[in-house]
Amino acid sequence: MATGGRRGAAAAPLLVAVAALLLGAAGHLYPGEVCPGMDIRNNLTRLHELENCSVIEGHLQILLMFKTRPEDFRDLSFPKLIMITDYLLLFRVYGLESLKDLFPNLTVIRGSRLFFNYALVIFEMVHLKELGLYNLMNITRGSVRIEKNNELCYLATIDWSRILDSVEDNYIVLNKDDNEECGDICPGTAKGKTNCPATVINGQFVERCWTHSHCQKVCPTICKSHGCTAEGLCCHSECLGNCSQPDDPTKCVACRNFYLDGRCVETCPPPYYHFQDWRCVNFSFCQDLHHKCKNSRRQGCHQYVIHNNKCIPECPSGYTMNSSNLLCTPCLGPCPKVCHLLEGEKTIDSVTSAQELRGCTVINGSLIINIRGGNNLAAELEANLGLIEEISGYLKIRRSYALVSLSFFRKLRLIRGETLEIGNYSFYALDNQNLRQLWDWSKHNLTITQGKLFFHYNPKLCLSEIHKMEEVSGTKGRQERNDIALKTNGDQASCENELLKFSYIRTSFDKI
């Protein structure tokens, strides 16, 4: 039985969820670079991206490699990797027998973001014989899940209580170790020597080791999670996991709180800001991140802002960003909400898709409305799209047979046209069989910064309504002859009103 693990408890099935942008060198404390989270699957090609990484700022997932063999891993080693800020997950990587050479110096898994409450997941690794993470000293947050690894031993010899604050939620089941077939031998045991430290858990006094050649490092209890030197002297209180010299914040392997210019500090002093819960960055760093993602459509890219001495992905609820200094300031009234469309555009074809934009005031991208039916549609669209004030790209209304009016965009005031449909149009209306009105132009103002209007096959939309939009939106004169079809717009509506004058002759039985 794995020490510190839980057996036999019912657990939810383990679901495996399925960018080499360097964020800056980590400095003297770390020998390499800070790398983003990685999802490495199918083959070993991307694994080489770990070569210079000291910190993975995010998670590391290595999974679904069915053609790899043990010899493929023999020359692979990433000794610079010290810390993973989120979680480490391995799933069905064939041929991998140990992690001792792959990650010989991995010391800390912070667990800032977890995989279903777990910071370390080893699942269905069919050839893994031992973990071998002999320098792993601290899992700051989260638990361990090690399950269905039929060859995995050296679990009962690990004292997880020396690595985690609590072992109650560890789930370590259905491994070879369960069948008591392992016969784990710690260093020196074969020669009758006791080389590794022994600890007591559940009444068992057991030597602690990761492999037959690597003991588990056990520091004096007084050192807590700070770690200790090879001689057993406690590291500085700002260290986490390990250090090369005692009581020196510049000799830590990793930091308990924050890293700044080669030393570990309790908090980031001005003019620095907390970033990702582990390091200090200056304003320029946060500003660069903001600008890199301002026009990016890459998933996970955030326009970072500053709030409460932190550089964070977005302002919290009730705050909006001051564009001059990136500071989050309290909103006066309802907060603006910028919604970034991942692929640059979004099609609204149902109430469900409209709900995804609920509360958005600025759309960074283009909207395509293609709704053919739905219950209580006008009210639903207004509830979900009615706060949109600005669209950076274009607005396209296409084959939306259920629409009679666009009044559900009740606050839309600006279409920038930074991206144009077919390279020309910022407003595009095609084949809307029941569209009769755009907006009530006596109450609604709309500016279209650039781009043209396109109207074709809107049989109940009168040309007068379209011409009014040209005047109000500032697009009059931009359109070419064929942009607004004269014969297919309003051709099934009563669009022309003329005053009919009647004269009559009164007659009676005795007068003409």
Results as ranks from 00 to 15, higher is better:
residue 30 Y to A: 14
residue 191 K to L: 08
residue 204 Q to H: 07
residue 43 N to Y: 11
residue 177 D to N: 11
residue 306 I to T: 04
residue 50 L to V: 07
residue 159 D to M: 02
residue 31 P to F: 08
residue 325 N to Y: 08
residue 31 P to A: 06
residue 167 V to H: 11
residue 130 E to P: 00
residue 225 S to F: 12
residue 151 E to K: 04
residue 146 I to N: 00
residue 251 K to W: 06
residue 33 E to T: 06
residue 48 H to S: 11
residue 153 C to K: 01
residue 216 Q to R: 03
residue 230 A to F: 10
residue 183 G to S: 08
residue 84 I to C: 01
residue 128 L to I: 13
residue 223 C to T: 00
residue 293 C to F: 15
residue 164 L to W: 02
residue 180 E to F: 07
residue 131 L to P: 01
residue 155 L to N: 01
residue 94 Y to I: 15
residue 303 Q to N: 13
residue 305 V to T: 10
residue 214 H to L: 04
residue 295 N to V: 02
residue 149 N to W: 00
residue 186 C to Q: 01
residue 328 C to T: 01
residue 36 P to G: 15
residue 80 K to L: 10
residue 107 T to S: 09
residue 240 L to T: 07
residue 232 G to M: 08
residue 330 P to T: 03
residue 257 N to F: 07
residue 113 R to G: 11
residue 208 R to S: 15
residue 86 D to P: 00
residue 80 K to Y: 15
residue 288 D to M: 12
residue 255 C to K: 01
residue 224 K to Q: 11
residue 308 N to T: 06
residue 36 P to H: 04
residue 268 C to S: 00
residue 314 E to C: 09
residue 81 L to Q: 00
residue 104 P to M: 02
residue 35 C to K: 00
residue 50 L to T: 05
residue 84 I to Y: 00
residue 245 Q to M: 12
residue 236 H to N: 13
residue 95 G to T: 02
residue 174 L to K: 15
residue 177 D to P: 08
residue 88 L to W: 00
residue 186 C to F: 00
residue 312 I to S: 03
residue 102 L to F: 15
residue 191 K to A: 08
residue 335 C to K: 01
residue 306 I to C: 14
residue 184 D to E: 13
residue 260 L to S: 13
residue 242 N to G: 09
residue 326 L to N: 10
residue 252 C to A: 00
residue 285 F to W: 15
residue 329 T to F: 06
residue 205 F to A: 02
residue 28 H to L: 13
residue 253 V to M: 07
residue 315 C to K: 00
residue 238 E to K: 12
residue 107 T to A: 08
residue 147 E to Q: 03
residue 149 N to K: 00
residue 225 S to T: 12
residue 185 I to Q: 03
residue 70 P to T: 10
residue 273 Y to S: 08
residue 49 E to L: 09
residue 290 H to A: 03
residue 146 I to Y: 02
residue 306 I to Q: 12
residue 222 I to T: 06
residue 100 K to G: 07
residue 81 L to F: 01
residue 65 M to R: 03
residue 79 P to F: 08
residue 83 M to H: 08
residue 217 K to F: 07
residue 262 G to C: 04
